[in-house]
């Protein structure tokens, strides 16, 4: 059964016929070719598919797209403006928070959600908030450093 839904993605309204089985992540990657959200586990445990839906960070693999008709969705592709990386992205680059980079888009989005709600988190708050984003390369050290540096800059 296919249904027509509208997703507002990175400011664009996209009308899509979807199979009810498809997750939001499936739709982003396979229908809309937005492949920045990554499929690391498909069960909500790794955070690589994190996007922001209606202002909240979510694992897009654990959402049926059909349930989210009309939602406002921000993905990593919507972060850079005028060809310039978002400060969060820039900080991750400059502080060395990116190695293989597979987890990076998920971190970018969850860090965005964190700083939107809490622009000056303590390090412990940042670490707790990001516990749902697994990284196997960096030991998180430089990711956290990037978060703290963005928080500091915005002060």
């Amino acid at each position: 059964m296919k249904t027509l839904i509208t997703l507002n993605i990175n400011g664009d309204a996209r009308e899509i016929y979807i199979d009810a089985r498809r997750s939001l992540l499936d739709i982003l990657r396979d229908e809309l070719a937005l492949m920045g959200a990554h499929r690391g586990c498909d069960s909500g445990d790794c955070g690589a598919c994190t996007v922001i839906v209606n202002g909240q960070p979510v694992t897009s693999c654990m959402m049926l797209a059909a349930d989210w008709n009309g939602a406002e969705i921000l993905t990593v592709e919507g972060m850079a403006k005028d060809g310039q990386l978002h400060p969060i992205q820039r900080a991750l680059v400059e502080k060395g928070g990116i190695q293989c980079g597979f987890c990076t888009p998920g971190f970018v989005m969850n860090i965005k959600a964190l700083l939107d709600e809490n622009p000056k988190p303590t390090e412990a708050e940042a670490r707790a908030w990001l516990a749902g984003n697994l990284c196997r390369c960096t030991g998180y050290a430089k990711i956290i450093e990037a978060v703290m540096s963005v928080a500091e800059e915005s002060a």
């Binding site: 959200a37 991750l92 990076t104």
Partner: peptide, 16 residues
């Protein structure tokens, strides 16, 4: 030196 491949990875544009 920041990794040369990092900006593209941060932007979600790298092809895995």
């Amino acid at each position: 030196v920041p990794k040369l491949d990092a900006p593209s990875k941060a932007a979600g544009k790298t092809i895995y």
